[in-house]
Design a protein around this nucleic acid. Sequence first.
DNA 1: TTCAGAAGGATTTTT
DNA 2: TCCTTCTGAA
Length: 744
Amino acid sequence: MATSQGTLLDQLNEPQRVAATHGRGPLLILAGAGSGKTRTITYRIAYLIEQGLCPADRILAVTFTNKAAEEMRKRVAEIAGAPRKPPLICTFHSLGVRLLRRHAELLGYGRDFTICDSDDQRRILKRVYKNLGLIESEIPVRRAASVISRAKNDAWPPEEYEARSRDRDAPVLAKIYRDYQDYLRISNATDFDDLILLTLRLLSEHAEIGERYGNWYQQILIDEYQDTNRPQYELIQALTAFHQNLCAVGDEDQSIYGFRGADIDNILRFEQDFPGTSVIRLEQNYRSTQVILDGAGAVVSNNVQRKGKTLWTADKGGSQIEIFTAADPRDEAEYVGQRIVRYLGEGHRHFAILYRTNFQSREFEEILNREQIRYRIIGGVGFYARKEIRDVLAYIRLARNTSDNVSLLRIINTPTRGIGAKTVQTLQGWSEESEGRIWDSLVRALGDAAFPGRAHRALQRFREIIDRCRSYLERPLPILIEQVLEATDYLEALRREGSEESENRILNLQELVNVAREAEQADIDLQEFLDQISLRSDADDYDEAAPVTLMTLHNAKGLEFPVVFIVGCEEGLFPHSRAILEDDLEEERRLCYVGMTRAEKRLHLSHSKRRRLYGSGPSESNLPSQFLMEIPPDLTTELTSPRVQRYSGPGFPQPHVPFQKPKRQFPGKTYDTKDSVRQFLDSIPAQEKSAGKIVRGATVVHAEFGPGKVLHVEKTGKDLKVTVRFPGIGIKKMLQSYAKMRPV
DNA sequence: TTCAGAAGGATTTTT
DNA sequence: TCCTTCTGAA
């Protein structure tokens, strides 16, 4: 074999090698950022296979994201060759799906169960609220969702919730939780948390299954152990009970998923849980310069809750950390844009722009577009979250699993086919007789001719569509999707609409067919395809092709970039106001540490003096993040935007564009259709216009526009009111121009 | 039943 | 500001 043991291990330093070649028994690898922890366990897997210490398919490795799993699979195959029966490398959730697809009946679920994401969850909760006669203002759906998730992560079943919770609204929440869970059960569906909990139940309640898998997996490796939560921890316990060969890798300073129930104690108590554990520390960093490490270390050392360690690197010195004070987010984006342009000139090729919340990406996108720099954005509204994609997938899900009420309600009248709210409600009422399965009640109602002619025909049509979809299920993936689009009239409805938006949707659907084609070529069947989509995070789409990557700090975990910009370092944003309120600064600080240690060579931190949070009102004046103060000044270079001066004085900011009011005439023209009004708006140069509502039935006689943006067009009485905003002028000074109109 | 227009709520972070 | 949901008219 080309990769002899010698060359394989030459890639590692001493402690890494000790870890990779560790034989039997529990092993805890405490590693710092950039110390090659993933690399170490990758080599360990290859080593176990090569040395014949464990059959490849009896190795289980759990990673944090699907992307990481994919990468690790590839690396292992490169080093150890691709064994006929490869090791199982996946996330906790996909491990759960894998086991549940085989044994779901034991838990009272069908094997075709649907996986609900947070959007489905929201829909279910809204239904539950309606049935219970609750209104959202009392308990926001978001809150209910997080309460339920928390309860599940604490392993509290619905019936115990009320007794255990100390929440003021516990009685109501308990009902919501119960009905929500019933609804999932009826729909033969699970949420993300269930995937872990049900697997756990499967292994513990069915001893023979637990034994089978516990026996099978001789070596288990877990990456990012600090981010495991309680149920995941128990799952590990169940699987390792027999062989006790668990290798966990983690860094307590990188625990950033507390909000999801990640329990830092899991790593702190490892040695107690697994007597005889060997502990190996990896403290040498191979990624960043000493300056970056010292800066990040100084920040995180303000945390009380840590064992403490000092990272070191052979790469001494390094450039100073640059801290930039911007006047506003636009200014901040300009700074980042200019720096990137300069770095590109110097030959740098990879950059990351990291922020705390997804909405911050906008300004940076604009600048990058202007500079014609390609970028990739991770998170936000992902491809698979789009309405049209979800709709089509819902058809397929329903065809596979007719119990799936969530999918059914989603598409029963999409595209509109004359099945209104009333009809749906009636159907739901009748579904009690079929354990809540709406599809069954629909079929029954058709048999009994229970609806009047029109509704009956509409329902009949819907039923035929689903039946037709079902007959396509066995066909190749791309063909299946095309035929579903055909059978459901989905594309046709979009084409009829003929708007720019619907054009886009059509393109997205074509893209879905392409994705399906690729999946088919990779020999992925329908079930796997759907599962992969359900479990996919947008971070999994990460691709190294574009020079600039924009993402949240959370998404950046495990990645590295030569140049990193952390933007929006302001009190209230990062650390987030919510974290300040809930006194959870330590996790935010770890997040800062994670972000800073992504940088190999250069690190830039920036903050804006002003930032407007959700639109209205004058922008807030922001203090720089406390984390910035925690970096020793001798490691930093501080820069201030020249624009800060102008804004820092008292009083309202002065407009930097001199005010003028050129006039433009639109005499006597009739705008009586949506399209003609749209045309009218289109005749205004694009840069002057950011938004416009379209009014029908108007004759615009006259309008005035300045060099500002058209914000709003509305009909008041017989007037068409056009609101224009000029740059640099506050909302109060917003100008309004009028166009008179008369009825057509 | 459907659509347009109006009102109201929302922003952490993810599998 | 933007997006979702609600409401009333056709």
